[in-house]
Design a binder for these strands. Structure first.
Length: 480
RNA sequence: CGGGGCGUGGCGCAGUCCGGUAGCGCGCGCGGUUUGGGUCCGCGAGGUCCUCGGUUCAAAUCCGGGCGCCCCGACCA
């Protein structure tokens, strides 16, 4: 019997997600609770994300470095809110080398503390500023409930850490990095994100302000896809990151931190995937084109494979990532379904008829069935494929944007917000409430303030919690 | 940590109530057949039935202890 199709998204989105992650070969279960093995196909998506971000970081003057995995426990305790925020989820090493350690070592949940300590040594003068550092690393947070990519006990990310002479510069850096994340999300991952500021309740432990990009998944839940924190002088004071100014005055630095993680792989899966599986944006797809050779009789094999090989070389020479499915035991129909599940943007079929006619069949993943198929001349293959990939990249973004926009509603009072959230929509509402009001919304509806969007309406109206006139709208949604 | 469920070849499960020495589907290997939307047939490999103890002539099955995992909540990139 043929392999079963995946669970439909509409039937059980979580189950769909889990099945896709394993069946598309992105990840495998690990022996340790809450951790996953990232398999080559999933890791290549992550490497695409890394490449897209790293390029942008360098272009804005950041340098990569690497700090230790272990952090002295006392460091974590130096910044009050930071301890409170992270203590419950720390993994701590108490023994090493067969002995109990004098001071336990925390496995980093994030590196503000160690990096702050290092910055304190590195920065003496205003001439040392700004200091713009990024690191690619793994971090550990002992989460109670985990899901592959979205929330794992250990995850990969980049964390940027910068120090500046003035508050204004730190704020500009924080905003610049958020813009970079948003640009990456839209351009490379084809995910339209909403930029905004976090509420006090959702803010990073120890930050002055936290900015976020929020994305809508296909089940309409929100996913915080990256954050950028203006840390003010909190960490500078806790770690003595100070400098001597031009005027010979000792002053504390203003610092920032910002990160995007392997969660983004989950975002790509959930923002674009459909009932047939993944739909990868061409810019992040490990394979942009997969060639499925079709051979009816052995006598045709060499002619077909010669053509396949020639087309593969042509596309590769044009920097298109192409893979030939040479598997012997599977029928073409099986392979079509398999590559659709794995989200390859373009499938090329080459059979005896195509060899004879000098044609190739191209099928685009984002348009199902016959409508997505076209016959093209082998002679023009490079241009056609290049245009097709660009078009798929664009259409995935357009689809996701249309989907998102059709599920955000403006609400005028609390009852409307409850209705909207109950229907799974995102709700935009005037907000001037307190932390307690915000907590109440969360307790009663399950939705949280995802952000106060930068993009604000002309007129705001009355707060849905207090009835007083508000100066901004907040975006409410259920989140991962 | 509260509520629910489950541990049996790589994966998904049946067998447990009523004890008799393990079976099905997928996957895997070999041979043949097929190939433009999930081919078909045959042969074959693969299991300390989570663990420790007890009852019994005999335990996947009954009894007791332990461990682990999953789902739903609270916490979270």
């Amino acid at each position: 019997m043929a392999e079963q199709a995946v669970t439909a998204q509409s039937e059980d989105f979580s189950r769909w997600y889990n099945e896709i992650v394993y069946r598309a070969d992105l990840a495998a279960p690990s022996p340790v609770r809450g951790c996953v093995i990232i398999k080559p196909y999933g890791y290549e998506i992550w490497e695409g994300i890394k490449a897209g971000l790293d390029r942008r970081f360098r272009a804005t003057g950041h340098q990569n470095a690497y700090f230790p995995l272990f952090i002295p426990e006392s460091y974590i305790k130096r910044e009050a809110e930071h301890v409170e925020g992270f203590s419950p989820e720390l993994a701590v090493v108490t023994h090493a080398g067969g002995k109990k350690l004098e001071e336990p070592l925390v496995v980093r949940p994030t590196s503000e503390t160690v990096i702050g300590e290092a910055f304190s040594d590195w920065i003496q003068s205003y001439r040392d500023l700004p200091l713009l550092i990024n690191q690619w690393a793994n971090v550990v947070r002992w989460e109670l409930r985990t899901r592959p990519f979205l929330r794992t006990a250990e995850f990969l990310w980049q964390e940027g850490h910068t120090a500046h002479a003035t508050a204004a510069e730190a704020e500009a850096e924080t905003r610049q990095m958020l813009d970079i994340y948003a640009d990456f999300a839209m351009d490379d991952a084809a995910i339209p994100v909403i930029k905004g500021e976090k509420s006090r309740l959702e803010r990073f432990a120890g930050a002055l302000r936290t900015y976020t990009i929020e994305a809508m998944m296909r089940d309409k839940r929100a996913l915080q896809s990256a954050t950028s924190h203006n840390l003010g002088q909190n960490f500078a004071k806790a770690f003595a990151i100070d400098y001597l100014s031009e005027n010979n005055v000792q002053a504390y630095c203003w610092t920032t931190s910002w990160g995007m993680s392997t969660r983004m792989v989950g975002a790509v899966v959930m923002a674009h995937g459909d009932d047939k599986g993944l739909r990868l944006p061409p810019k992040l797809a490990p394979y942009q084109v997969v060639i499925v050779p079709i051979v009816r009789r052995d006598t045709q094999r060499s002619a077909v494979m010669d053509t396949v090989e020639r087309l593969r070389a042509t596309l590769m020479a044009a920097d298109i990532r192409v893979h030939v499915d040479r598997r012997d035991g599977q029928s073409p129909g099986f392979k079509f379904n398999d590559w659709e599940m794995r989200g390859v943007p373009v499938r090329m079929e080459i059979g005896p008829k195509d060899v004879e006619n000098g044609n190739a069949v191209l099928a685009r993943r984002d348009v199902p069935g016959r409508a997505g198929k076209q016959f093209v001349s082998q002679a023009s293959i490079t241009d056609v494929v290049r245009d097709l990939l660009a078009d798929i990249q664009r259409s995935l973004l357009d689809d996701a944007r249309a989907f998102r926009d059709s599920h955000i509603v403006d609400v005028a009072d609390y009852a409307q917000l409850c209705d909207a959230v109950a229907a799974g929509e995102w709700a935009r509402a005037a907000w001037a409430g307190s932390d307690i009001d915000e907590q109440r919304v969360k307790d009663e509806t399950g939705a949280t303030i995802r952000c106060f969007p930068f993009d604000q309406p002309e007129r705001v109206g009355k707060c849905i919690a207090t009835g007083e006139s508000a100066d901004k709208v907040a975006l409410f949604a259920k989140a991962y």
